[in-house]
Write a protein that binds this DNA or RNA. Structure first.
Length: 956
DNA sequence: CGGCTGACTTGCTGAGAACATC
DNA sequence: GATGTTCTCAGCAAGTCAGCCG
């Protein structure tokens, strides 16, 4: 074994520690509860809610007189919610809470309405209809193990939940891989209701289901897609909804040209047929659901898997792996229809969001994008050869872009200036007085820019507020989309403003003009039945309109710097689609836990393989696993020279006897000052790491380097496609980047456990703080004594004379200091506790948040210590160690007076907290029940992402 | 089969909000 | 209230990787 996995950790499914502090065990007796729940949910979700949903959007008359989709986006009504009963204490209510459909209200038929809300209704109707069909699907879940069990179990003492997990036997490899059989085998029978069978499924599952069937009953997706669609675009860019004009929308293939014609349409390649897709997704869905149930359980104690399934003999696993491998090859050759028959098909679909042609949504309504305001000329004249120069607004705009960068590092980069000059001089024209950048003096414009900045800074808070509100008002309608009837936040709805390209490192295109994007550059993706957003710029129109529900983007345009590439408008990270995608990523990483042992054994074996290619794959996989290197795709000449594992150059790796490797992705200056090999990591970041490696790896690297120059590829037989193809043979869905997620998460898990066991950190903090406190107080007391004697205070640590205060003032200060220090102690403690998981924002993409929740639960750590995390759970991201406010907010999403969902939010400025602060109270109110609730629901609703209507807030 | 395309995810950075201190 | 510091968020550059196509 080349690399040893950490021995025991929460992330380890196979944790044998049955005596762990807390185990959330599922009972096998929950099927009846499930049914009970289902019926409740059915009621809740099949009834029309109180009509509030209608407030979400309304139709407005477009200025041109045509109807346009416009969302009023009224804020969620803040009606008081009745206090919710703890689902932990009340399994029944918990069930209804947990299982209720988020915001999908039953439908009121309203065919002709043009309002966004009505569109949603129609959409919902479709969904519902589809769901009826869905229940006849072939997938049956048999019983037990459902999230409801969690609710059930949570009412029991934790210790009582220990048993039974191990009783979930391994189903063996005959129907799936060992890991899958352990966790993914469907066990819950879906007994859908004809009214809304969807509601029977867990939310996460429902999401997937819907995404696959959607309109199939009324308008089969496949057939619809294949129908030619006429262009809906009208001359002024405003679009009339016209189902008969869909012929041109057949195409889905993206245009690569930058033509402005909106008449063009592009056909997308045929999609997977409906039936198999549906089947596949159901399988995946069930799998995911099973995992959902586990999410709130400390992972280490989750599934007491029979040791044999993973580590009994590696041959068993390898056998399974081989089957997977051959199956995959077959899949590639067979039609997609056959795929469903593959016993591994569900494994292949671990990541439905990975561009595999699966349906991502059934209905999509949004208002397009907002454009930056047109350029306002300032009229400040720059100097050329010491003389003021006249510029047209266009020329001035680009000159200003350059001028405002006067004090940045880019100004010292010849490439930046060269590229800027190339583009700007084109704009100036041949006959312009400006012939050379060297003689240009942009100072007057720069100074004007500084003045403007200053003016802005000097604005009163009222003015700032008004400006902000004005901006919000303008942007509000673009901020939201309705996906499958659920209101979701749009991520980057603002079109990128023009500017100079700021490539990182030594990007060859830095300084080039990123021209202004116009509507005719933008392709909109929207639901077939949704109103096409009105083009916000009069007289212009969108480049194209698509209705592609296999992708999640709402709009895209070609990157003006690299027209081969695209800029997308996606939903925000808090959206269900993104959350789902994140969840799948973590699931894949978790799955790797089951395979890692054999993967490591396999590559260790191949270190000495005769086949060079095989040997390179083995060593590369080792480096990715051990050094967390990125895969390293090939780069074009017009991109920055950065490397990853597969593109490592000989010069990037230095062999240090006897068995160390120094991996250097950095600038290595030559004597003449020019870099010898500027092969940096992502974002042109330098990376240097010296590690001890297995001797065979060391030797193999040496062999790969032999006879090559420093700039030659170390792995000349390898690229990311080959590597990933190989990885997929080892584990379904495995790619190089999964190792990063896996290793980051497992490290977090491991460290959390380790630190918690040691308990040293907290002690050290206390000692430090006490010393600090005593020091400060001693100083103050000295000052107090001196003040009482009428003497001035001593000088401070920096030698400065302190202010002369009255004894009363010093006493007050001492009291204040005590309060502050106490607070600081708490904060420091929190920080110190979280230090072991000190994560930059970059890390949020790698750490499975469930680990943290499980850890909190196990170690009885109040969840508020990771408050930001709780906040982030709702958005599908983890964020630990950052600032903490005080106070929480629970967003209760209701459906006809029944709690449909609960969402936790930070609310540092809640009236209660403010009041408490004013009154000098410390800390936040967290009853054990509340903490329990937060943990419970956070896990349950993890990534499900309830959004939208019929909601209210309850501060606690 | 390999290159290319398209659709994402990942991660750095700057701006500004929030908070702390004087 | 002015100033300094910390935190958060959005923007966008730069990665990964699946699937298509020649």
């Amino acid at each position: 074994m080349a690399v040893e996995a950490p021995s025991k950790h929460v992330y380890d499914y196979d944790d044998e520690d049955d005596d762990g502090p807390v185990v959330f065990k599922r009972s096998n007796t929950s099927s009846s509860k499930q049914n009970q729940l289902n019926s409740e949910v059915k009621k809740a979700s099949s009834q029309r809610s109180d009509g509030q949903s209608g407030r979400q959007a309304s139709s407005v008359r477009a200025p041109n007189g045509q109807n346009s989709v416009a969302q009023t986006n009224k804020s969620i009504p803040l009606s008081k919610s009745p206090p919710i009963r703890s689902p932990i204490l009340s399994p029944k209510s918990s069930n209804s809470s947990a299982k209720a459909s988020p915001v999908r209200s039953p439908v009121v038929s309203s065919k002709a309405s043009t309002s966004l809300n009505d569109q949603s209704k129609q959409v919902l109707k479709q969904n519902k209809f589809t769901a009826v069909k869905e229940e006849k699907g072939p997938i049956k879940r048999t019983d037990e193990t459902n999230s409801d069990d969690d609710d059930d179990d949570d009412s029991k003492p934790l210790s009582a939940r220990l048993k039974g997990i191990s009783s979930q036997g391994n189903k063996g490899v005959s129907t799936s891989t060992p890991a899958q059989s352990q966790r993914f085998v469907p066990k819950i029978e879906v007994k859908g209701s004809a009214e809304d069978p969807d509601d029977d499924a867990p939310l996460s599952a429902r999401f997937s289901m819907k995404s696959n069937t959607g309109t199939s009953s009324s308008k089969p997706y496949g057939s619809h897609e294949k129908k030619p669609l006429a262009s809906k675009i009208q001359q002024n860019g405003s679009i009339m909804k016209d189902k008969q004009q869909k012929s041109s929308m057949l195409s889905d293939k993206r245009p690569l040209d930058k033509g402005n014609s909106s008449d063009q349409s592009y056909a997308k390649k045929p999609k997977i047929s409906d039936t198999p897709t549906m089947m596949k997704t159901k399988q995946v869905t069930v799998k995911a659901e099973k995992d959902d149930e586990d999410d709130h359980i400390p992972i280490s104690q989750r599934i007491k898997k029979s040791v044999s399934s993973v580590s009994k003999t590696s041959s068993v696993k390898q056998k399974a792996t081989k089957v997977v491998s051959s199956s995959f090859k077959k899949i590639n050759k067979k039609s997609k229809k056959d795929m469903k028959k593959s016993k591994y098909s569900k494994s292949t679909k671990l990541s439905p969001s990975s561009g595999d042609g699966q349906k991502k949504w059934s209905t999509l309504v949004h208002n397009g994008v907002i454009f930056p305001p047109p350029y306002k000329p300032h009229g400040i004249k720059m100097l050329y050869d010491g003389r003021p120069v006249d510029l047209t607004p266009e020329q001035e705009e680009v000159a200003t872009m350059f001028a405002v960068m006067q004090e940045t590092d880019y100004m010292s980069k010849p490439q930046f200036k060269k590229n800027f000059w190339e583009d700007w001089s084109k704009l100036l024209g041949r006959n312009h007085v400006i012939k050379s950048l060297d003689k240009c003096d942009f100072t007057p414009i720069y100074e004007w820019h500084l003045q403007e900045k200053e003016k802005k800074k000097q604005m009163s808070s009222e003015e700032k507020k008004a400006l902000k509100e004005e901006k919000l008002k303008q942007e509000e309608k673009y901020m939201w989309a309705i996906v499958d009837g659920v209101k979701e936040k749009v991520g980057n709805f603002r079109v990128e403003p023009p500017g100079l390209f700021r490539g990182r490192g030594e990007h060859p295109k830095m300084g080039k003009l990123k021209r202004r994007i116009r509507p005719c550059d933008i392709t909109i993706n929207i639901g077939k039945d949704a109103l096409i957003p009105e083009c916000p710029i009069p007289g212009e129109r969108w480049k194209d309109i698509k209705h592609d529900n296999t992708v999640t983007w709402l709009a895209f345009w070609n990157d003006p710097i690299n027209p081969k590439e695209f800029k997308y408008v996606f939903l925000a990270a808090s959206s269900s689609l993104k959350g789902q995608s994140d969840k799948e990523k973590y699931e894949k990483a978790r799955l790797l836990k089951d395979y890692i042992k054999n993967i490591r054994a396999a590559y260790t074996k191949d270190f000495t393989a005769k086949d060079v290619s095989k040997r390179q794959i083995a060593v590369a996989t080792y480096l990715i696993d051990k050094l967390a290197l990125r895969a390293g795709n090939e780069k074009d000449d017009d991109e920055a020279d950065t490397v990853g594992c597969c593109t490592l150059k000989v010069g990037n790796v230095e062999c240090i006897p006897p068995n160390k490797l120094k991996v250097r992705l950095e600038y290595a200056p030559r004597k003449d000052g020019i870099s010898l090999f500027d092969f940096l990591g992502k974002d042109s970041i330098q990376y240097v790491n010296t590690v001890e490696v297995e001797l065979p790896v060391y030797k193999a690297i040496g062999q790969f380097q032999t006879g090559k120059s420093k700039s030659d590829d170390l792995f000349d037989e390898l690229d990311t496609s080959k590597l990933n193809a190989h990885l997929k043979e080892l584990m379904p869905g495995l790619t190089a980047k999964v190792f990063r997620t896996y290793n980051a998460s497992i490290t977090l898990d491991d460290m959390l456990n380790k630190e918690t066991k040691d308990g040293d950190v907290a002690e050290k903090v206390v000692i430090y703080q006490r010393a600090n406190k005593e020091g400060v107080l001693k100083e103050l007391k000295t000052d107090l004594d001196r003040a009482k004697k009428g003497k001035p205070p001593l000088k401070d640590a920096d030698g400065k004379q302190k202010r002369n205060l009255t004894p009363e003032a010093i006493e007050k200060k001492i009291a204040q200091t005590n309060v502050k220090i106490e607070k600081m102690e708490r904060d420091m403690q929190t920080k110190e506790d979280l230090k072991t998981v000190a994560l930059g924002t970059s890390k949020i993409n790698y750490l499975d948040p469930r680990i943290t929740v499980a850890w909190c639960k196990r170690h009885e750590v109040p969840i508020e210590k990771v408050k930001p995390y709780i906040q982030q759970v709702t958005s599908g991201k983890v964020c630990l160690g950052n600032g903490c406010g005080s106070g929480f907010q629970i967003l209760i999403i209701r459906n006809k007076n029944k709690v449909g969902a609960i969402k936790f939010l930070l609310r540092p400025t809640s009236p209660r907290e403010k009041k408490k602060k004013k009154e000098g109270e410390k800390g936040t109110t967290k009853t054990p029940l509340f903490v329990e609730m937060m943990i419970h629901f956070s896990i349950y609703f993890f990534f499900v992402g309830f959004r939208g209507k019929n909601s209210c807030y309850m501060s606690i």
